[in-house]
Design a protein around this nucleic acid. Structure first.
Lengths: 221, 221
DNA sequence: GGAATAGTGTCTATAAGACAATATCCT
DNA sequence: AGGATATTGTCTTATAGACACTATTCC
């Protein structure tokens, strides 16, 4: 007589940046898009984080850069069978070239905070909540780097802001903040284009997520 | 065949300030102290917040000044019956003189982050997590006012800091921050003692919790 | 050289911290 | 007057923002 997991769902809002666009990971089942979600497997999971990670690893073999619980909601109305509970997580991933992806996995775009497609159930609301959290947290933490590939330039960090918010902080502020902390390592490599090459940085080994003591002001709406 | 709530618990970490001390609300059952906690009542509750509030209103008729979800934890070990889930909330209350209190309600002291008594189950861990959240959030929000009575002085706000953290920000900074925002109203009244009287303020009607864009620096350990 | 983006120098603005100086009550 | 706490004035410090300027690449 253990926990009945039937009406308890773990839903994951997974974001990535691909070609300058914010994207959301969905499962497409019978034409309907929904969030990766599932039940606790008492035999497999030792905590809710593991349940959330399992939802993602069933869709891809790609590593999750960042995972955080957003909120747990419960109500009598959200599921037609009655009272149900949903634990919402959000995940940040890197856009990688050829990891394995499940048949039904599909990344959909988010442009100006609006999803390109519609989602089943109340999943749109969950995405909006997770996105709010993300948009707020990038302003005082090192979260932007978790949306970027292993090696990135400081302008890439700025690009994360322009993609997620209307306005990005000035490069001066981004450089000062990220280089002041002992958070990034200069790889010595350069990214070349039809312009002055940019220094490629990587996150220092085992750096925890860095929390700064101020928000950027330019990013407040 | 609705939600089986047997292994889902809503636990509330309720704090108040009384005579310069931070206190935690507990239920004392057979000599054991535990957090106010209970199950979802599908017939009564429309969301988890309501379940949390119900735990408190069964112990007292006093109003809750602030309520926030901390985290949901799940694991196979915390309950001997197997996998269980706990949604943790924290609440801030004012110390009032004579509201009704249930027989088994008991406020216990927290001194330098250490509980004066021990708690059943893993409730100590939940309190520590909630306290961490609170200690962090008072540094960039108007939360301190929710631990104070309806009318309070600016020094009272500083007292909240000294009680919760080792160090308080200077009065200058507290005054500037709280008076800059259109958050408090000068009641015109004064609190008298054997010294210069202090102006009594109250929170402006229907002010939402105010979030500032910086942390105090003096309060970082 | 010109376009394009990277990176620096430097001044301003804002808000916190330090600390001294007043102010206003009580006894 | 003296003690006590409240309140203000003002200077310093830290970091973000604005913006002009320089640097380095490709073409």
């Amino acid at each position: 007589m253990g926990l009945n997991t039937a009406l308890i769902s773990i839903d994951v809002v997974a974001f990535r940046m691909a070609s300058g666009q914010l994207q959301l990971l969905t499962r497409k089942l019978g034409g309907l898009h929904m969030l990766p979600a599932g039940r606790i497997e008492p035999e497999l999971d030792n905590c809710l984080d593991e349940t959330a990670r399992r939802q993602l690893s069933s869709l891809s073999h790609q590593q999750v850069a960042y995972l955080e619980q957003v909120e747990t909601i419960g109500s009598p109305d959200r599921d037609s069978r009655g009272w149900s509970i949903t634990v919402v997580y959000y995940a940040l991933m890197t856009h990688e070239d050829n990891p394995w992806w499940a048949e039904d996995a599909e990344w959909v775009g988010i442009s100006e905070g609006e999803l390109d497609i519609s989602l089943a159930y109340d999943h749109k609301r969950l995405v909006i909540q997770a996105l709010e959290r993300l948009k707020n947290k990038i302003q005082y933490s090192s979260l932007p780097v978790y949306l970027l590939p292993e090696e990135f330039t400081l302008s890439d960090i700025q690009k994360v802001f322009t993609t997620l918010l209307e306005k990005a902080p000035p490069m001066r502020s981004i450089r000062n903040r990220f280089l002041r902390e002992d958070l990034l390592v200069d790889t010595g490599k350069l990214r070349r284009g039809s312009n002055r090459p940019a220094a490629l940085y990587r996150v220092k080994e085992q750096s925890p997520t860095c929390l700064f003591d101020r928000l950027y002001l330019t990013t407040q709406q």
